Computed example of a mutant assay.
Amino acid sequence: MPEKNIRLEVMQAIEPQVDGFMEQFLMPIETIWQPSDFLPDSESDSFFDEVHKIREEAKELGYDFWVVLVGDTVTEEALPTYESWLMDVEGIDQHDEKGNSWSRWVRAWTAEENRHGDVLNKYLYLSGRVNMREVEMTTQHLINDGFDIGTDRDPYKNFVYTTFQELATNISHKRVGKLAKEKGNLSLSKMCNIIAGDEMRHHLAYSEFVKTIFGEDPSGMLMAFADMMKKKIVMPAHFLRESGQSAGKAFELFSDCAQRLGVYTAQDYIDILKKLNASWDIENLRSLSESAEKARDYLVKLPERLERIAQRMSFGQEQYRFKWVEANGML
């Protein structure tokens, strides 16, 4: 049977479990946090005092911090791209009445993720520390440019990607929250930490999707995992740019800031791979095809290989003048 047909059959076979995954890993809209829970209440007489407090606390945060926070915010704001991509994955059908369980998952996941960009964008606006028009143009460029994460319409590869990326964003937001707390910015720290909590729930959900697929098609799932790691997991914002730039020019510079701050590093990438290998019990999978056995050998040895490469890697130490924050006079 063609590989595409096998994937579709597997997606259809495990679809009845998806509603249960939604109950386990997503939260009701009426009870989950909303951006207004962490921002000044515009209806309150104390609104301007609260905004003043945000602006004063924001002055304690350094240049690299603001670059990373802007990059994280723009990444979250490009959500329309991610939803449209996932809706096109094999086995996800949004056209049959309200759609199948997979499409309901994508909509519910998107609805939760949407709050992240909202709260961070409003915080940036109130902080007075960034050039919002430049940030907004970057967001529009990123959505307009789209992205190619190397997964095509393959559900196996897409779920490997989302599992990896949700954990990566968990790490990034959690570290930014820690840095904010160290500077006495407790409100921003709370925002970042609660976003990180969402990302962890989503990571666990996508990891469970992959684990379930391993139960149905271990060889196919293992080879898809290996293929994604051979291509390397590219960040959702790998086409990040500032106004007047070509797509992708700002991403490496943004990544240098994240590396300097220790927000997201090459070692984090390796640690995530190790965690996925362990979580999916790669070494103990049985009844594999010959190609899948080779894929497993590759995945088991890959962390050590990447660590050797990471030891030789270097990243930019010089602060690039981003249009997002250069008006603050922090350089």
Rank of each mutant, 00 (worst) to 15 (best):
T31I: 14
N144D: 04
M87F: 04
S289Y: 05
L188Q: 05
W66Y: 12
E57F: 15
Y125H: 08
Y156F: 14
I270W: 01
I143E: 00
R55Q: 15
D96W: 13
V74A: 05
N144Y: 12
S207N: 13
Q245H: 11
K98S: 01
R321L: 09
N193F: 10
P155I: 10
Q245K: 09
G71M: 03
E318T: 12
Q267V: 11
Q140E: 07
E56C: 14
T169V: 13
L8M: 04
R312G: 01
P40V: 03
W324S: 04
D217N: 14
W102G: 05
S103K: 04
R153G: 01
G91V: 07
G220M: 11
V135I: 10
N193D: 10
E166F: 09
D281W: 01
W85V: 02
V325C: 07
M22Q: 08
I282H: 02
A224L: 05
T265V: 06
A196M: 01
Q24I: 00
K294C: 13
L302Q: 10
E112C: 09
K230F: 09
E43W: 13
S255K: 13
E56T: 14
M27H: 13
E182H: 12
F315C: 00
G177F: 07
H238Y: 14
F251S: 08
G184Y: 08
H203Q: 11
E113D: 03
P16V: 10
L124C: 03
K183A: 12
R104W: 06
I233H: 08
M27G: 01
I149R: 08
Q94V: 00
